[in-house]
Design a protein around this nucleic acid. Structure first.
Lengths: 101, 101, 101, 101
DNA sequence: CCCGGCGTTAATGCAC
DNA sequence: GTGCATTAACGCCGGG
């Protein structure tokens, strides 16, 4: 097997376990489950926020605004912010190159 | 103008205003700005969560787990069990028809 | 099974075949294979074109041009062709209401 | 200027030209345009092929095949057999560790 | 030579 | 159900 993986590639201390049983269902399984559940929790929160945003657009449309144009404005504002950050990072880079950090 | 819009399509009460003054810069502008800022706030929170998720994957990789497989598992868990089996059986059927078994 | 599929959902004329054997390995399999091979052929051609494009970028870089900037130019030229004036005017209107001009 | 560029960074043979006149509008401009147009031509061809592929999927759906499954099959056929089995076994392992079998 | 970031492209979900 | 907007996956690229 080329790829390392959590279950089989580490040295096995326990010589008594059956072939390839490893940590299956054991500690690594618990860690894996923990990772998965943390991610799932965060994704649910993300989904909640997406729904909130969608609600705002729906409401805005209901009062006569055009959602597509609003999205475009938001994109513009984002771009402006990024441009400023880009300038900042270039500034930091130059300072770094000059040993001013 | 085909599309309704917040600024020009409503009945105008004030016959004295100069050309195109309407609500521009006034109440509708304030409402629009409020909408935009609420959305931007929520999108920032979403971005934060996305970053958190990315961190977890990074950490998981660092301890020997395979991110791609984890994503696949999470996808499975989201999917209705019946639908999943249906997809699998169709997949096997096609492979069988192609002599890929 | 909810989804229609080429092999099992059509009325079976041949009452002698085993349950669910259908066209597996037979005519539908041939049609499926044909579909797949046609798609694969086209995807190979696409890959060839992608490689050609990549070669041009490599050559351009070799003679002192900046690939990233060229890509940006090409994107701009594409966008120019797509621009819709109606959206443009509404966009300007909203920006005006926000004092973004 | 950090990045090389076709117009200003080369040694100037012609000492009489004004500051920064370089090849702008001259030979390098022609070469750049040629590069861009060659790329655009190839990208159009790519787009044509993409459309052809889309047509085949549409047709396949029209005769009862499932596009999603076909895509999965094509993906499989592209993938190295050994790598595919490796992925599958890791996937099964993770499911086993999670008690999803 | 590996890795993380980025740009492109495919897949999903949503609105009409 | 179809087209579109968002989101996720893939592959390339430059830097460490």
């Amino acid at each position: 097997m080329a790829k390392t993986n959590k279950f089989f590639d580490e040295d096995e201390e326990d010589g008594n376990m059956g072939h390839n049983s490893g940590d299956v269902g054991g500690i690594a399984g618990k860690r894996l489950l923990s990772i998965i559940e943390r991610i799932e929790r965060l994704e649910e929160e993300k989904k909640g926020l997406s729904d909130d945003i969608k609600d705002i657009y729906t409401e805005a449309k209901g009062t006569g605004f055009d959602a597509k144009t609003i999205k475009r404005i938001i994109k513009d504002r984002k771009k402006d912010k990024e441009k400023l950050e880009e300038e900042e990072s270039l500034y930091e880079l130059y300072k770094s190159a000059l040993g001013m950090l």
